[in-house]
Design a protein around this nucleic acid. Structure first.
Lengths: 149, 149
DNA sequence: GTTCCTGCAAAAGCTTTGCAGAAGA
DNA sequence: TCTTCTGCAAAGCTTTTGCAGGAAC
């Protein structure tokens, strides 16, 4: 499912989604930075490069790209929506301490259950939460024996 | 993990969480209605019974109960937080047409991956989206061949 | 008598909408 | 030229916060 930038452009053209400069920049940002950014992050970073960019346009672009099936919306926490390029099915692990979201591979088919035999499944999401190795190490170094987040 | 109402009260007392009338009502509501309600739903329903209840208190109660480990916060969609009693690990399927959230059993351990060996996993969530059998039937009855949600 | 809870109102965030002007095809 | 995109400001939602009064223990 990982696509080249050119493939993505073709997909957008097929769906009559205009390849505006700003839209391509958002797409390029997601392709370059696999950090599951928030709208805020994307806006802040791109704004440095494109001072005229507005947050509305970032929203518009992400929605357009999500509708085209190129971008996946990630909602682990209720107060922050994150975005990622749509790639092979994978799980997301969010560190409760540093906030970074890590990908991990999963065999998504193993999760299926015959209880859902008569359901039409369109999207499968697997979200874990906890503490990442880096934060575990930092906590250990600081002699905290219990992590209060 | 399914607990009796009395067990839950004991758990709350142990954690120094006061058993106020309103808090118990919210807990009772969740125990009776396994519909993964939003704050709005809980407030609307309980408000009929307890006219003095405020939405702030519903929020407070849910947070207190979540901190005590009795309530699970479900965020499938970014614009609506839902709440459920904490029970055995299970997956959630949200119908994109009617909005109902269904539970399904999963073997959560099967999802684990050695990529996360050095991570401390505290919470595992499995969210599916799609169309439920009832909606599939309704769509069929209406001669829609494609579902545009 | 302390502590914690409650509820109102206001504030804070994030996201969407309306609209005029600009850019794309 | 016609459609679509952009950006500003304002509106809309949900959730949080501050604070005074009240209930619980």
């Amino acid at each position: 499912m990982r696509r080249s930038f050119e493939d993505m452009k073709i997909l957008l053209r097929q769906q009559n989604i205009k390849l505006s400069h700003h839209r391509l920049k958002v797409l390029e940002y997601l392709a370059k930075h696999h950090i599951h950014p928030t709208v805020e992050q994307i806006y802040d970073d791109l704004h440095k490069e494109i001072p005229t960019l507005s947050k509305t346009t970032v929203y518009n672009s992400l929605h357009a790209l999500a509708n085209a099936g190129l971008v996946r919306i990630i909602t682990i926490e209720d107060n922050e929506t994150r975005y990622d390029l749509e790639v092979e099915p994978h799980g997301h692990f969010k560190c409760e301490r540093c906030g970074i979201i890590f990908n991990f591979t999963i065999d998504i088919d193993k999760i299926s259950t015959n209880e859902l035999n008569h359901f039409e499944i369109r999207e499968k999401s697997v979200y874990f939460k906890g503490i990442c190795p880096t934060c575990l190490q930092q906590v250990k170094d600081n002699d905290y024996w219990r992590i209060g987040i």
